[in-house]
Amino acid sequence: MNLTSNIQSYSINFHDDATIINANQLNIYYSGKLTVENFNLQVPKNKITALIGPSGCGKSSVIRSFNRMNDIIPGFSLEGKIIYKGKNIYSSREDPVRIRRQIGMVFQKPNPFPKSIYENVAFGARVNKYQGNLDELVESSLIQAALWDEVKDKLKESAYALSGGQQQRLCIARAIAVSPDILLMDEPASALDPVATLKIEELMWELKDKYTIVVVTHNMQQASRVSDYTAFMSLDREKIEDRIGVLVEFDETTKLFTNPKLKETEDYITGRFG
């Protein structure tokens, strides 16, 4: 049990080698307004960690700070540290471009480039001056993303000719083509139908061996199906008008869903399960 300021929260701790990202006392601000306060999280390596919580509690803000995606948002600022491979990615010596090559991201709405399927997957390799065989890379990335069989005959066609679910798997293929360590996924299936959603979830299971995955989801069944660990965020009850996001509970997914430590977590998961 871990009591910080006046917020009650519960978090498990790992041995340092078992984790890949350590978020340490993060405060996130937009245009000076505090949005997420004192956020601490150890992300375990080669596991799937889900981030759940009510809308507006700052899940996207947190996950987007893990690869400095928020840097391109005017007005964003952050205090605290995010340690990845022993270094604080927010230290002034670190180059956000290099970090994003190692920590990839898949977004809520599929956002393929208006280019061919092939060029979408090859894009990251091209900007990273990949030396190997591009055709092989495209093929193996599409295979890993479970999309190869559906698109192998139309690699030169526009990515927009694909269905939403296929586009999202293309975006996953595009992300893994640069062989990142970590894949951040912000509600990757929320714009998709149930069949396509299931495909993405299966895919996440497959990818777990090679990558660490952090996934934001609104859907608690999805979190319980797919993840090994779950972090529950919510708005700070003490200062509810300020709408400040905090971490409430972080635990193994099975424990968090069957036996939550905190009343607030229990209210949230039972409320949603009906």
């Binding site: 995606m69 290099r98 994003r100 090559r101 977004f107 894009f123």
Partner: peptide, 25 residues
Amino acid sequence: RSLREGAYALGATKFEVSTKVVVPA
């Protein structure tokens, strides 16, 4: 903006985002 973010997330620099994604689009 989602297209720009997609490119940034693959490790593209601002110049690459501008010339390889925004200008073609």
